[in-house]
Design a binder for these strands. Sequence first.
RNA 1: GAGGGUAUAGCUCAGUAGGUUAGAGCGACAGUUUGUGGCACUGUAGGUCGUGGGUUCGAGACCCAUUACUCUCCCCA
Length: 452
Amino acid sequence: MKPSIPQGTRDFGPEVVKKRNYIFRTIQAVFELYGFAPLETPALENLDTLMGKYGDEGDKLIFKILNNGLNDPKNIQKAQLAFANVTEGKNDKNLTERALRYDLTIPFARYVAMNIGQLTLPFKRFQMQPVWRADRPQKGRYREFYQCDADIVGSKSLLNEVELVNIYSTVFQQLGIDVSIRINSRKILTALAEVCGGLEKLTDITVAIDKLDKIGIQKVKEELLSKNLSESQIAIIEQYLQISGNNQTQLACLTQLLGNSEIGQKGIEEINFILNFHQNNSALTVDFTLARGLNYYTGVIFEVKANDVQMGSIGGGGRYDDLTGLFGVPNIPGVGISFGVDRIYDVMEERALFPTTISIGTEVLFFNLGDAECKTAYHLMQLLRNKGISCEIYHENTKFDKQFKYAEKKSIPYVVMIGSKEIAEGTCIIKHLPTSTQVTLPQAEMTNYAFQ
RNA sequence: GAGGGUAUAGCUCAGUAGGUUAGAGCGACAGUUUGUGGCACUGUAGGUCGUGGGUUCGAGACCCAUUACUCUCCCCA
């Protein structure tokens, strides 16, 4: 049998894991710096928990897990009936009642709803775990990928949004990725829908205008036309989409267009509040075409894209006013952001942004030059390890050539050579491979040598 | 869910209008070199050309099917 892994999943080799961990470490350190506490939830959730939370398209992409014991005689009939239901597009508990986590936000909401009595609000948590989507894989899109989320629940304050923007800026600055953080408010989009065709058109409108930079104004208009919007309504949307200029100019134009709408005004105020805190943040730009697919957002929404790289968004998030209401605990507002680690990795790889230092593993290789020599070397090596220096000893007594090549291949900068001559003298040779220089030291002084 | 592309050695790929024993570079291994690697030279190993069928005197190449991978659209991190 030819070994393989499922489509859209990946193995991560040692070098890749080191680089990924660098990203995780960076993000986690910033999360902690801003006062977020860690949380982990199961890979599996009850299907009920997830269904209906991500929109119709989202529901289709949830990986469902087949129940066990379907072949048990007492289950067979139920299973067959259930299967018929499923082929009609419905879910049936007799066939599947668990699913793989689709994102980290809904499981978090579920956790908050279950533990609301124990939590001190506002509750700030971060979570870095894989999620699964039954999507067709392509560039920058995987079926298993990691998200790093930070959310705050139990606070309506826009200060939270301000903080989240700061987290985005800090992380991407530390990683060296040049990004633009786009910001909009669902309230503004709602106001637009109120003016053009009513709230039931909100999704159609947002989906269409979200594609503007991809398909152009003409195609967007065609799509809106096909969704039964009138010419005059489309004209307003076109005006809306043509808003341009710097952040202040755009807001001024928008106020003219939607300022009469109460909810529109609120949206504009929100954006203004955040911009005021970030006057010197050139990465932050308002973008009224930003919509975001997940339909639980109700307020400010974010999306982060790497500049000058052909890649979908590498982060996103927004405010949701009543996510826990879905689980029976109403009136807990929340806001959060997410980092797409896998795409961030791809961007950093493409841009060669990983520091070279993160790939260093073993620092010192001890040569194996015979039984007695090996024993001496081994004890010296343990002394070095006790000082926190990572060491290896070559696994067998073979010629220098091989041992050098091993060190070179693993990018081990130092080798320590102890042969019969050194044993007799009580010395050792430390050689630095990159510079091809070496020193001979008494063995007792080796642990004081400045390996670096 | 819809539509493209690719599949030849461990890796990256050649392979010309179908014609004899399927090639290169890199890598691996061995030697030149039994206490000093990277360089160089020499040599060795490694492929039922994704799988199954068909056309043909003859198929890596052409046709059909199938599988895997990859990209685009929808949607999304």
